[in-house]
Design a protein around this nucleic acid. Structure first.
Length: 487
RNA sequence: GGGGUCGUAGGGUAGCCUGGUCCAUCCUUCAUGCUUGGGGUGCAUGAGACCUGAGUUCAAAUCUCAGCGACCCCA
């Protein structure tokens, strides 16, 4: 079996394919996180991971977009990590939803605490006792506050970096208070609009749908969710917005005095996004060569690579000049003057997802141009050195748009019309199944049971409307539900 | 919730079944020097590992148990 040639051939193969192919998504994902230095998955506690400086840079830039969008009419604040047991246990539904996942602090040093402290799995019960104090008059409303914090959930299922964590390190949660139910409902709409804009900036296509009754946030009137579709055809919930009605207001006694001097229960919403957004960013755009970033969030937007033959002082000078000019025009640029061969440099920066690569060699210099290579398509062209800044910025937009277009197509190509549950079951490994659903709880639960996958909900807009009959009760309906395997 | 596979340098692996030949294989990585430079340059020298704990044994990477951790499948 073993020939002399075999080890050598194998070695060559391994060298070419440092990263497992993306078709093997799970392996690709884990390896990429480590190789591209997003997260170190080797921290010795289950479900906890380390952000590398490079990954953290991506996180910072991604979260800068959320902040920018929210800061228009929200205020950022910070509430404590520890929640006393008595506050945490106030809302019955809420407890049911989270109590099996809560970490408890029971001791201070060697002394047992009189009141146990929960590590927040989410912050409603940390924030709302304060809202009770803050909300006095209708003039105090609306309140729109968000915070970006870590939260803890004792996950018993399979944990996965950025996707299912025991410490969510980047939980952006907004909590608003309104006078009326309708006003709160409008805020939920606004939240999903903001989230869609956020994901548009990341070139990630999304589907917004109302979660079925049995899958809503514990303690909410209803839940709107933002989902995207991952390369392995499972959906990832990457944002939620909950209408809390006055459920929590009742529990936490959040009331305001209206114009007529009456004490009225407030209405609330909360909505959140986590580092799952970054999981989606990496997974949707990445390829067999590594990361692919939209320019806006790429830690390095352009890498300049000198093509040197012997002593090419003029090439080096030209590269330094280009790098300096790009930097001066606000572009995040790296000049790779290291002692490696150009090919090795290409692979290295491709792994890191740098959107554009600028090569300058003697040939380019003679023509007074630079060669520009796009990370997303691999396409190569040249641009005059004189206008390099403009040419680069032009391409940034092109890269973003074509990333988004490609992602949209990929998602749309995996939306599958179905009319029977057998069909759903058969097609679901290949994407998201669309199926008529009357909207009744019993029918929905039987559908999930029969298919072995979840109902995400009835999507907003035309995706969620059509004609058909509910596969369980046979009632005619214009509701189209989407079903998928979920993370 | 149920079932399965696995844990060897920074990463990927061989060795484990049948204990001793292992101060542990190969690739990659890293360090130094020369060489090379439009898609992973070549050579030389060097660095780096048996998950943790207990047990069986004259002897454990190898067998047993427990813990921790990773992955896969089903519900």
């Amino acid at each position: 079996m073993t020939s002399m040639a075999e080890p050598k051939e194998k070695a060559i193969q391994e060298k070419k394919a440092v990263l497992p192919g993306k078709s093997n998504f799970s392996e690709w994902y884990n390896e990429l996180l480590l190789m591209a230095e997003i997260m170190d998955v080797r921290y010795p506690v289950k479900g906890l991971y380390v952000w590398f400086p490079f990954g953290f840079d991506v996180r910072k830039r991604t979260y800068a977009i959320i902040r920018e969008l929210l800061d228009k009419d929200h205020k950022e604040a910070l509430f404590p990590l520890l929640i006393p047991e008595n506050e945490f246990m106030k809302e019955a539904e809420h407890i049911k939803g989270f109590e099996n996942e809560v970490y408890w602090v029971t001791h201070g040093g060697k002394n047992e605490l009189d009141v146990k402290l929960a590590l927040r799995p989410t912050s409603e019960t940390a924030i709302y006792p304060m809202y009770k104090v803050w909300v006095r008059s209708h003039a105090d409303l609306p309140i729109k506050i968000y915070q970006i914090v870590n939260t803890f959930r004792y996950e018993t299922k399979h944990t996965r970096p950025l996707i299912r964590l025991r410490e969510i390190t980047s939980f952006k949660e907004a909590h608003t208070v309104h006078a009326t139910w309708d006003e709160a409902a409008k805020q939920v709409e606004e939240a999903t609009r903001i989230y869609q804009e956020f994901y548009r900036r990341l070139a990630i296509p999304t589907i917004v749908s109302k979660r079925p009754e049995w899958d809503k946030f514990p303690g909410a009137d209803y839940t709107m969710a933002v989902d995207t579709l991952m390369p392995d055809n499972k959906t990832l919930q990457i944002g939620t917005a909950h209408h809390l009605g006055s459920n929590f207001a009742k529990t936490f006694d959040i009331k305001y005095e209206d114009i007529n001097g009456e004490q009225v229960l407030a209405h609330q919403t909360c909505y959140g996004i986590s580092e799952r957004s970054i999981a989606a960013l990496i997974s949707i755009h990445g390829d067999d060569k590594g990361l692919v970033f939209p320019p806006e969030v790429a830690p390095t937007q352009v890498v300049v690579i000198p093509i040197i033959f012997g002593k090419s002082d003029d090439v080096v000078t030209a590269c330094r000049d280009v790098a300096r000019r790009l930097k001066e025009s606000g572009i995040r640029v790296e000049l790779d003057e290291s002692d490696e061969r150009p090919g090795a440099k290409y692979y290295k920066w491709e792994m890191k997802g740098v959107p554009l690569r600028v090569e300058i060699g003697p040939r380019d210099l003679k023509n007074n141009v630079a060669t520009i290579v796009r990370r997303d398509t691999g396409s190569k062209d040249t641009a005059p050195l004189n206008d390099i800044e403009i040419e680069i910025k032009k391409r940034f937009e092109m890269v973003h748009d074509s990333l988004y277009e490609k992602a949209v197509k990929s998602l749309e190509g995996r939306l599958i019309d179905c009319s029977t549950l057998d069909e759903v079951k058969e097609k679901i490994p290949t994407g998201i199944a669309k199926i008529p659903w009357c909207g009744e709880r019993d029918c929905g639960l039987s559908m999930e049971e029969a298919v072995g996958a979840g109902i995400l909900g009835i999507p907003e807009g035309k995706l969620g409307t059509g004609n058909g009959t509910c596969p369980v009760c046979g009632k005619v309906t214009s509701n189209i539900a989407i079903m998928a395997k979920t993370y």
